[in-house]
Simulated assay, not measured.
Amino acid sequence: MKLSAGIEQAIHSVTMMCGLSGDGVLSAASMAEFHGVSASYLLKHLQALSVRGILETVSGPKGGYRLARAPEAISLLDIVLAVEGAEPAFRCQEIRQRGPNPLPKQMFVRPCGINAAMLRAEQAYRAELRKITIAALISDLNDTDDGSIMERGCRFLALHERKPTPKC
């Protein structure tokens, strides 16, 4: 199975937003710059994450994105489903019933064994992704980082985090 590059970009962007202050946001352009990716491609995925309630969109000149849920409440499966959609990776086309000299329909009352096996594998894959939260990824990073990765991210956030203008 091959996932789109948008999955990696979305996960890294969500983890980056964990470092924002309570009311801070990041623009799609700044996240794209930090990760060295296409802003328009990343924006498409950030919008999908917003639609699924993972991110919150703040409009206006100081607008951008921030987490809509706590990192403990965002799983890798949430992100994959937001970016890739809920359809299973394998979609049975019932080709066993095609071709020359097909067998009668009554020979195919049981579900296709290949389809059943692929769906079981998909369920296992999704169950694993469901177990891994953004908070757990950050914790793992903190356990292995000598401080360099976090420092780089913090420096970037200090320069690019947007704060809403107070309404007075």
Rank of each mutant, 00 (worst) to 15 (best):
A70N: 12
L129I: 06
L76Y: 04
A86P: 01
R98I: 00
A70M: 08
G113T: 11
V83S: 07
G113L: 13
Q93S: 11
A127D: 15
P100D: 08
L81H: 11
S139R: 14
G147K: 10
K105Y: 05
P102I: 09
K62P: 01
L137C: 13
Y125D: 12
R96E: 15
D146L: 06
G85M: 05
F108W: 15
I138E: 12
G113S: 13
A136M: 13
A68K: 11
S139W: 02
R155V: 06
A121Q: 14
G64A: 04
G153D: 04
E151K: 11
K62Q: 13
A124R: 15
R98V: 05
G85W: 06
D140P: 00
C154K: 10
D143E: 14
N142V: 02
V83Q: 03
N101H: 14
F90H: 13
I95L: 14
P111G: 03
D78C: 07
P88A: 13
G63H: 04
D78G: 01
C112N: 06
R155E: 12
R120Y: 01
A86G: 14
D143Y: 02
P111V: 09
A127T: 10
A127G: 08
E151F: 02
L119P: 00
E84C: 04
L157W: 01
Q106C: 06
R96V: 03
M118G: 00
P71G: 09
P71S: 03
R69P: 01
E94R: 12
Y125H: 10
D145T: 08
A86F: 01
Y125V: 08
E87T: 08
E94A: 15
Y125L: 14
P102V: 10
M150Y: 03
P100M: 13
M150H: 10
A86L: 02
Q93P: 00
A127N: 11
A116F: 03
A117W: 02
P88K: 04
K131V: 01
Y125C: 09
I95M: 10
R96D: 13
S75I: 05
L77S: 06
V109M: 11
A135Q: 15
A136C: 00
A121V: 12
M118E: 14
I149P: 00
L67H: 09
V109W: 05
C154D: 07
M118N: 07
L119M: 15
Q97I: 03
A136D: 10
P104F: 05
A127M: 07
V109Q: 15
A136T: 10
G63F: 03
V80L: 11
K105I: 10
L119Q: 15
I79P: 05
V109F: 09
A117D: 09
V109N: 05
A136Y: 05
C112S: 07
K131P: 00
L119H: 09
G64K: 06
C92H: 12
A73L: 06
L103E: 13
A89S: 10
K62W: 03
E87V: 05
R130G: 00
I114F: 12
P111M: 11
G99S: 08
K105L: 06
C154A: 15
G153N: 10
